[in-house]
Design a protein around this nucleic acid. Structure first.
Length: 435
RNA sequence: GCCCUGGUAGUAUAGUCCGGUUAGUAUACGGGCCUGUCGAGCCCGUGACCCGGGUUCAAAUCCCGGCCAGGGCGCCA
């Protein structure tokens, strides 16, 4: 079998600089835009790195007529000489000696990749691949790549082992959120809503674990910050309590900010985001302190009540950046959260907030089997259906703590996007299952 | 699930309140002119009133139902 000859590039578009003047280069990319002046044609070629200008003059090149109907998003191979050019805004252009049309795009396209003609979010998501070619939208996912790499780098440097827990589970692991049901051979299974119980069990093996992966919630939520399928960054660590893991969390956030600023300055600029590395420690407020603050602001809540969106927005006006709320009422938290020793009505729990947005939730977990069983019953759950989990507590269970961080919500903050759907390549919500 | 707002060329919109000439504009697309554009420019052209029912001499416009979308609330992270 003979291998096909593939066109190869010597440079990416963003590497075409005036300093390369006179050098022969070859490029591969998509036609971002064409400005045809009749005797001269300017092709803006785009690849993953950015764009550069290819200038074609009439009668300057054999086979020019071949380019007459060049259009948006056609794929080209360009061979030519770099020319420093003051008349070009980028200060440089490529004078081609050969252009090959590798693929032609349909026209008109259903979406304007250059962004000249605006499109609504629904239209954008319907044509997501074209939408992602828009440099602004692509920038979001280049930042996402850096965030994921930075998180893994941080966890490894701190002795955490990456784990992968099942997405297909037999029943509700922790109550709370609604689950998607699915047919599993001759029985019924569910899509996991969190790795919670598995990651706790694995601390008895690896001590410090993390997982980055998708989870599923069958909630009726119709907001800018909810998805049916989202990505969670989770950790769990043996011999730690809430204070330890809060420190890890704020250090991770700082590390991610630094990495994004290091590696993605251009993308931040394209997105118009001014990012600062937050200072640690983040402010910490107890649930009781927040309750008092809200009361002074004219919002009276009963002790034990959860904050509504209205209350969170009031808090967000006061606290622009990252802050923690700690020690929530035990009854408002899941069964596995450790109640405080000196007051079991209060739990060793916390949320990480950014303005009014909840980013992460965590705490110290119960490590005593009897207490865990008691809490299951109190929350109306049946200990029998948790037998596989409970028996682990008979095999030597250390005190442990952890948290789960909403990856997309963090990304919204880092990229300044107002709708969570914008920071997911192919978002899933109650009303969207395609593309 | 509930509430509010909306649905007009491929895309984004004006017109709708107060029913009545050929439904306007931008961009995309097609054609023409143009050798320094960079949101290129100028000229010409193709192209649309979400679906169903009702009111009326007449419905993009008013009413009812459906579907879809955006935002908010609740749920939830």
């Amino acid at each position: 079998m003979k291998r096909r000859k593939l066109p190869r590039r010597t440079h990416y578009c963003s590497q075409i600089k005036p300093e390369l003047d006179g050098q022969k280069v070859s490029l591969l990319g998509w036609v971002h835009d064409v400005r045809d002046l009749g005797g001269i044609k300017f092709i803006l070629l785009r690849d993953v790195s950015g764009t550069c200008q290819v200038t074609v003059k009439k009668n300057s090149m054999e086979g020019l007529e071949y380019l007459e109907d060049i259009g948006h998003e056609d794929v080209l191979y360009v061979e030519g000489i770099v020319k420093s050019q003051e008349k070009a805004r980028l200060g440089v252009e490529v004078i081609p000696s050969r252009i090959e049309i590798i693929s032609r795009a349909a026209r008109p396209l259903p979406y304007d990749v250059t962004g000249k003609t605006p499109a609504g979010l629904d239209t954008r998501l319907d044509h997501r691949i074209l939408d992602l070619r828009n440099p602004e939208n692509r920038a979001v996912f280049l930042i996402a790549d850096t965030v994921l790499a930075a998180a893994r780098e941080f966890f490894r440097a701190n002795g955490f082992i990456e784990i992968r827990t099942p997405r297909i589970i037999v029943s509700a692991t922790e109550g709370g959120a609604a689950l998607f049901e699915l047919k599993y051979f001759d029985t019924v299974a569910y899509l996991a809503q969190s790795p919670q119980l598995y990651k706790e069990e694995l601390t008895t093996v690896f001590e410090k674990v993390f997982e980055i992966g998708p989870f599923f919630r069958a909630e009726e939520s119709h907001t800018r910050r909810h998805l049916s399928e989202f990505t969670s960054i989770d950790i769990e660590a043996a011999f730690m309590d809430l204070y330890d893991v809060m420190e890890i969390l704020e250090k991770l956030i700082v590390h991610i900010h630094k990495r994004v600023l290091d590696e993605r300055r251009r993308e931040l600029e394209i997105l118009g985001v001014e990012l600062d590395v937050p200072t640690t420690p983040f402010p910490r407020y107890t649930y009781d302190e927040i309750l008092r603050y809200l009361e002074n602001s004219g919002y009276r809540l009963e002790w034990g009540e959860d904050f509504g969106t209205e209350h969170l927005r009031v808090l967000g006006e006061k606290h622009a950046g990252y802050y923690f709320i700690t020690h929530f009422p035990t009854k408002s938290k899941p069964f596995y959260i450790q109640p405080c020793e000196d007051n079991p009505e209060i739990s060793e729990s916390f949320d990480l907030m950014y303005s009014w947005l909840e980013l992460a939730s965590g705490g110290t977990r119960i490590s005593d089997r009897k207490l865990l069983e008691k809490r299951l019953v109190e929350q109306g759950l049946n200990p029998k259906s948790f037998e596989h989990h409970l028996k682990i507590y008979d095999y030597g269970m250390p005190i442990h703590a952890g948290w789960g961080l909403g990856f997309e919500r963090l990304l919204m903050i880092l990229t300044g996007r107002q709708n969570i759907r914008e920071v997911v390549l192919f978002p899933r919500d109650k009303f969207r299952l395609t593309p």
